[in-house]
Each structure stands twice: as structure tokens, then as C-alpha cells.
């Protein structure tokens, strides 16, 4: 193994090492501080943790691809909420009632289509106007959230379908439905990014857009596909989550974009594009969820949890910078 690949392995392994440290810390600290008498590393607890990671996790997978491609998407939280409304509301539409359980796949399809369309709008604007994705999706974040409120005002949108709830709460080979969605999505996207032309070109564009253009890569269509993909994943996340909960508030999904970005960055993907990995993002997602659960386990409240996660994020990125700095040449600020 040459030093290059070894260096890469260390980088990609770092997040998993961090997870191990968290597990050890919370297990030991839990012995003394825990409010419950269950062990932290309880098997059911870990399964639940994976399930709870799924909503933001699925979005974070898409965010990884968007960021590797050199863009960002701030509108995923609003897309998540709007897709959830379409999912739940469509099942109450009169003609859907006549379809029986066939209403479920149709409602899913409509919700997923919503995400794809919203993503395509972002992608087309970024492609055709050349405006930075940060600005475009900042705008669409506000716009899509506006649509959410236009739909039902401040009222929650609710519909419980017990067949759907049963499906969402099912466990197959021990893992919950949501976990399966997260893992299968991760596997497919990992294949997409490491083995396909689209993935290769996405890295190339994120690393050096001009050189990619000069190599004959059509940058715009790749942008469009990736925004459609993250839109799809945001709505998939909504579908998985709201199939079970059955009620969506107009404020749901707020800050999801930032949690997703946090997980992606913690996993080592670069904000500047061209570098990152789906598997590491999965690590980032799990690490954050572990922190939340672990701090709760030892008795910290939500405010403290957020404070600690924020501090850890900055500390991790600082450490990464120290390790990757090239000599003294970098500007001191």
C-alpha cells in the first residue's frame, strides 16, 4: 500500500474511530451518570439509533453528492415538509379513497415526484442562470417553505393509514424499515459515486469545473441530475418518516439542511467540492445521532446537546485542518 492510499484510509476511517470513542465514552459515563439503568450499548437502543438517523441521514447522502459536485442545497428541509404534506394530504383526496391500499404507492409516487420536481427547479435555475447554488437554494428554501404554509396555513396536515404505519414500523432481519431505506440508499449512492460515469464526472466538476468543461463534460446536466436526486432523497426521507407519524406541521424539516450539512462535513466531505464519500457521511450521521442519544443518556438536555455538537463540529474541522495543512505556507489570519 502506498502512502497515498494509506492517507486516504486514515481520513476515511477517522469518523468511525470517532464513533468508537463515543460508544466507549457514553458506555462508561453512562455507568455513573445515567438516569436509566439500561446500558447505553443495548442492542435495541442501537437499532433505534439507526432508525432515528434515517430521516436526516437519507438527506445527508444526497447532500454529499451535491457538495462533491461543488454545490449546496439549502432547500431540502422545505422540500421534506412539502413532500410530507403531499403524501398525507393526497391520501384524503376523494378518488384515492376508492383505490383502497393502492392509494399508498400512488401517494408515495406523488410525494417523491414533488421532491424530484422541486429539485429539478433548483437544478435548472443553477444550470441556466449560473447563479451560485447557495443563493438559488436559499431563495427556494424560503419559497418552498412559503408553499408549505400556503397549503394548510399554520395547521398541521394529518392522515393516519394503518397499513402504512404497520409497514413503517415493521422490522426485517432486525432492522426497521427506515434503517433499510437508509442503508439501501447509501449502497446505491455509493455505487453511483464510485463506479459510474456520473459519479466520476461529479467529482471532476467539483474539483475543477473549468478543466471538466475542457474535457468535454457537460456540467449543467450533471448539476440538474444531482439536484433532482437530492430532491428525490428529501422526499424519500419524508415518505419514510411520515408514513409512521401521520402528521406534519408546517415547521417540520426546518434546519434539516444544516443538520445534513453538519453530518456531511463531519464525514470529511469538502465544502469546496471534489472530495468526499458516501460511506463517511453515513458515519457522520451516526456520530451525530450517537451524540444526541448519548448526551441524553447521561442526562443532558436538548440545549446542551446542540451546544456540544456545535463545539465538536468546530473542533473536528480544526483538527482536520491542522492535519492537512501544507507546511507553514498557508496564510496566517
Amino acid at each position: 500500500m502506498n502512502s497515498e492510499t494509506r492517507g486516504n484510509l486514515i481520513k476515511q476511517g477517522a469518523i468511525w474511530a470517532f464513533i468508537v470513542v463515543e460508544l466507549l465514552f457514553f458506555s462508561i459515563a453512562g455507568e455513573y451518570l445515567s438516569v436509566s439503568d439500561k446500558a447505553f450499548m443495548d442492542f435495541d437502543n442501537m437499532l433505534l439509533l439507526l432508525k432515528q438517523s434515517a430521516p436526516i441521514g437519507i438527506i445527508a447522502l444526497g447532500m454529499t453528492i451535491i457538495m462533491i459536485n461543488g454545490n449546496i442545497d439549502l432547500s431540502v428541509g422545505a422540500t421534506f415538509a412539502l413532500s410530507a404534506i403531499v403524501l398525507l394530504d393526497s391520501m384524503t383526496w376523494p378518488f384515492m379513497a376508492g383505490l383502497g391500499d393502492w392509494a399508498i404507492p400512488l401517494a408515495w409516487g406523488l410525494a417523491l415526484l414533488t421532491g424530484v420536481v422541486l429539485g429539478a427547479i433548483n437544478g435548472l435555475i443553477v444550470w441556466k442562470t449560473g447563479v451560485d447554488a447557495f443563493i438559488v437554494t436559499l431563495g427556494s428554501m424560503l419559497g418552498y417553505r412559503g408553499l408549505v404554509f400556503m397549503y394548510n396555513g399554520e395547521q398541521p396536515t394529518s392522515h393516519l393509514n394503518w397499513t402504512l404505519v404497520d409497514f413503517a414500523e415493521a422490522q426485517f432481519l432486525g432492522l426497521h424499515t427506515a434503517t433499510w431505506f437508509l442503508l439501501v440508499a447509501a449502497l446505491l449512492l455509493w455505487l453511483l459515486m464510485t463506479k459510474t460515469i456520473h459519479g466520476r464526472n461529479a467529482y471532476a466538476i467539483g474539483n475543477n469545473r473549468e478543466a471538466a468543461v475542457n474535457a468535454g463534460i457537460r456540467v449543467g446536466p450533471h448539476f440538474l441530475w444531482n439536484f433532482m436526486l437530492i430532491g428525490f432523497l428529501a422526499s424519500l426521507s419524508a415518505v419514510v418518516f411520515y408514513s409512521e407519524s401521520g402528521s406534519v406541521n408546517p415547521n417540520d424539516g426546518m434546519l434539516y439542511e444544516l443538520w445534513a450539512i453538519t453530518a456531511v462535513v463531519l464525514g470529511g466531505t469538502k465544502l469546496t467540492g471534489g472530495y468526499g464519500s458516501i460511506v463517511s457521511t453515513l458515519g457522520g450521521v451516526i456520530a451525530i445521532q450517537l451524540l444526541r442519544k448519548g448526551l441524553g443518556h447521561i442526562g443532558a438536555d436538548t440545549e446542551t446537546v446542540n451546544l456540544v455538537i456545535g463545539l465538536i463540529l468546530i473542533a473536528v474541522l480544526f483538527l482536520d485542518r491542522q492535519l492537512n495543512r501544507k507546511g507553514k505556507e498557508e496564510l496566517k489570519i
Partner: peptide
């Protein structure tokens, strides 16, 4: 700035324009 993807390996840089046909 315009010719190479510096963060990619030698092979991927070389095959970049024709990777579409190498599936």
C-alpha cells in the same frame, strides 16, 4: 487551472473525456 483535475489520480484524468464509452 484548465487542464487537470488535480485531486484526481493520473488514470482518471487521462480517461476523463472518454470515460462515457468505457462502461
Amino acid at each position: 487551472g484548465q487542464g487537470l483535475i488535480l485531486g484526481m489520480n493520473c488514470r482518471d484524468n487521462m480517461t476523463l473525456p472518454q470515460v462515457d464509452d468505457m462502461t
